[in-house]
Design a protein around this nucleic acid. Structure first.
Lengths: 353, 353
DNA sequence: GTGAAAGCGCTAACAC
DNA sequence: GTGTTAGCGCTTTCAC
């Protein structure tokens, strides 16, 4: 086992330390420390002198020393278990990350992104977090729970997962009710008189994808509608995958009258294929997507979609992490966020509740 | 001035320290330190005992302590001066970041991304770097030099910029010869017999964009071709901007016979507009792009483009940073990388030579 | 309101 | 090969 990370020489140029500031200001180190930490109990005049000394010496806090003494780094990691280009191509994800930064920015906590596109790097992140470069971590994307989590959890590193983990009892997470809302989508379509409702999945290695599928199935059985595997097309979140999936659906069931796709992009592919096959949306086939990306409202017809709120998601993740970092919040907490179905033109007249 | 970042309680649970490992293994702290740092001079038997003790105690290096003692963090920052979704939507950029991670991965250095989409956060990054959370930083995207750089440079923080900075003498950077290659593109088009060569710029707040424009102009004058502002359309790297730019170009010069666009996406927009106006590419108007993204080879006709190598770019940035971190490499160094013009169908027969 | 003293957990000479 | 001894630059009681 090598934890060596230092084939570098001593890099740092000389910099003023707290002690030197103290000398210049003719106070003790403690006082300087109080000033830089905004401790109330410093006389105004003293504070002024210290501030001046800081300016003169060009002093900057040394984070390593502070972290060692205070046991806090003032930074948290956002581990992204996916290729970054892919991850940020999702509207929802990038808004969410943005909101996450805002959340921590206010609290004076630096957010660092650590990409973990493959297994090698996932292990590296594990080290990074365990070695306390950061006070905690938020795990996003298709988290490889088998590799990373056990070790991290054993070490009681503050951790929150975005999305439902496989074993929900061991770790804090934030998720939306994917299956519940999918059930409602199907119920809505049924209420609109649709009988043959197809479904296009996301990548099935992803709990969100399987949960949506589950909800779709429950929705069908609630509505007493026909349920067969020919109505389920396997997609992978991408446009092309949905093109094939829709073609397959149509081949299996030419009388299809609705398609619910696991994201907007795939829904747009479905509309495309339906149109190419001479079917009109929503007249012949209703279509519903997921995520309510800008794409949804720019399509024609406008796409009905399920909206999840990235800001809310971010705040939930952030609060859960902070709770773990500050309190001795030991038991895993989870939050299931509400979603909203936006019925637009692509599904015809909205089902009045 | 507040550098307070700690409104958190002591978060860390108790963890084994070096000292405790030493006790269990019945050796000194130094020996344990040698083992975890892969120092050669440890007897095999001793090493075994220590490793065992590490396993038993569940010991992990405390990065803060190590950093304080060794003056090295084993991490570097990638500061991205742009919205991440935008930044990663560029094929070149995301490959480059990927390559950068690989580069440092091999050297056991953790790369962290710190997004700096706006000025508030740019200042925060400055702190982050100055406080020595990391050993150095690579600045990517449209770096706001006025804000960040002076302070950072004063502190002698190891720093490299990706792209040409405004004042090249003060800081290390890596860039390609944007103007030179643009000159060659125009020379090539001229050799192919094109006389009225239009240009579509990128965002002009970006040195790469202005350099390409410069090269275009030089190319025209080298070839003795007509040069007027009506031949230059202002784009912003985006598809839509290039649509308008091309329309404008066509309005100014209906006899346009070539368009050189500052990236592939804008080149594709140009081809589109030309086609809509009844002009064929390359017969009526030759088109050349920049970056050689996958888009270039997937267009029809295949797009001629300027290729820059993301891996090479990454390695150059990495080496320059490492040199600054390890050596006392004080004088700013810069590297200008070669590029390659790929003549494809969109410009007609390649200019031999 | 301010200072003294004792670490935080590690690395790095330097002995032996 | 291994141990001893000093720190690294801060925060944090605890006195005063």
């Amino acid at each position: 086992m090598s934890t060596d990370t230092l084939n570098l020489k001593k890099p740092q140029p000389q910099r003023a330390t707290l002690y030197q500031v103290a000398e210049v200001a003719k106070v003790s180190k403690s006082t300087v420390s109080r000033v830089i930490n905004d401790d109330a109990s410093v006389a105004e005049e003293t504070r002024r002198r210290v501030l001046e000394a800081i300016a003169v010496t060009g002093y900057r806090v040394n984070q390593s020393a502070r972290a060692l003494a205070s046991r806090t780094t003032g930074a948290i990691a956002l581990a992204i278990y996916e290729d970054l280009a892919t991850y940020f191509s999702s509207e929802f994800s990038s808004s969410m990350v943005m909101a996450l930064q805002d959340f921590f920015f206010e609290k004076d906590i630096q957010v660092v992104l650590v990409p973990a596109p493959d297994q090698r790097r996932q292990l590296r992140i594990e080290q990074y977090v365990q070695q306390r470069h950061v006070d905690g971590a938020i795990l996003l994307g298709p988290v490889r729970e088998d590799i990373l989590l056990p070790d991290l959890l054993r070490d009681k590193v503050p951790l929150v997962i975005g999305g439902r983990p496989a074993r929900t009892e061991t770790v804090s997470f934030v998720d939306i009710d994917n299956s519940g809302v999918s059930e409602q989508v199907v119920a809505g379509l049924a209420k609109l008189g649709r009988k043959k409702i197809g479904f296009i999945t996301g990548r099935l290695d992803n709990p969100a994808a399987t949960d949506r599928l589950l909800g779709y199935r429950r929705g069908l059985s609630n509505a007493g509608l026909s349920q067969d595997d020919g109505l389920v097309g396997i997609g992978n979140w991408g446009f092309k995958s949905a093109v094939s999936a829709t073609e397959q659906l149509l081949a299996n069931h030419p009388d299809l009258d609705a398609v619910y796709a696991s994201n907007d992009l795939m829904a747009s592919a479905a509309i495309q294929v339906l149109k190419d096959s001479g079917r009109s949306t929503p007249r012949d086939v209703a279509v519903v997507g997921f995520d309510d990306t800008p794409l949804a409202s720019s399509l024609s017809p406008k796409l009905s979609s399920v909206r999840q709120d990235p800001e809310l998601y971010a705040r939930s993740l952030g609060s859960l992490l902070l709770a773990q970092i500050s309190n001795e919040q030991t038991t895993p907490q989870s939050t299931i966020l509400p979603t909203q179905i936006l019925w637009r033109d692509s599904s015809g007249t909205p089902p009045e509740n």
